[in-house]
């Protein structure tokens, strides 16, 4: 269980998160919001990449608010795949195992599900955008994180490839049965990937029943 309590974050005195509270069980919770609403900031604070100005983050009952990212055990997939360009796909995928004896069956399962088997010895620059996104997700999953954070991981791809990857991402993210926080501003992506939904507006989060309800609220907020 990932529990976020009253999280606060400001940049140069401008509040971005004004007390975000959220609970995520072993499910894919999609957080929707407009551009600039603080979605990426929320994920970065939860991941420990940015320090929180206030509030708490708990993972499996343990407070992790002050832990650095390397000690949180969370998988993170940013908007751009951010594959390590000097390493092969294989080295990228195994990076998070940090030389530990790899769970070969698990690695093979992730690699097969993402269709990466024939690309393992290639460099990231030799892959298409879609495969780069697959590698980014697989790389975050392979160390078996205790939670996954995905920041619009498909936003840099064109629509046709995104649609193809929604099902794939949903299927693979369910493998671990850990809390997944998935940020997007694409309605169809939210519907196809998400299992529960929340809306980030004005620096606070409110849970909603469906992606449709979230986007309806967003639209009414925009027109208001």
């Amino acid at each position: 269980m990932l529990e976020i309590k009253n999280l606060v974050k400001a940049f140069n005195g401008r509040p971005v998160l004004k007390g975000v509270s959220l609970q995520v069980g072993p499910e894919i919770k999609v957080v929707v919001g407009l551009n600039g609403s603080g979605k990426s900031t929320l994920l970065k604070v939860v991941a420990g990449i940015l320090p929180a100005d206030g509030g708490q983050v708990f993972l499996d009952g343990k407070e992790i608010t002050s832990l650095p990212p390397e000690e949180r055990g969370m998988g993170y997939v940013p908007q751009r795949p951010a594959l390590f360009p000097h390493l092969s796909v294989r080295q990228n995928l195994l990076y998070g195992l940090r030389g530990k004896r790899e769970d070969a069956a698990w690695v093979r399962q992730v690699v097969d599900l993402m269709g990466l088997g024939e690309y393992l010895d290639r460099r990231p620059a030799q892959l298409s955008g879609g495969y780069q996104s697959r590698v980014a997700l697989a790389r975050a999953l392979i160390p078996r994180p205790r939670a996954m954070l995905l920041d619009e991981p498909l936003s840099s791809l064109d629509v046709a490839i995104r649609q193809k990857l929604w099902e794939e991402f949903h299927r693979v993210l369910r493998l671990l049965e850990v809390p997944v926080l998935y940020v997007t501003h694409d309605r169809e992506e939210a519907e196809r990937v998400g299992e529960s939904f929340a809306l980030l507006v004005g620096g606070v989060v409110q849970e909603v029943d469906s992606a449709r309800q979230a986007f309806a609220a967003l639209q009414s907020g925009v027109s208001a």
Partner: peptide, 25 residues
């Protein structure tokens, strides 16, 4: 900068991320 952020979430300390990811690029 995402390279470093991802490396950190994959277990790298700042020094490790700098030498293993930043410098080689």
């Amino acid at each position: 900068k995402e390279l470093i952020e991802v490396a950190r979430t994959l277990g790298d300390t700042p020094v490790e991320a700098y030498f293993k990811v930043a410098l080689p690029t």
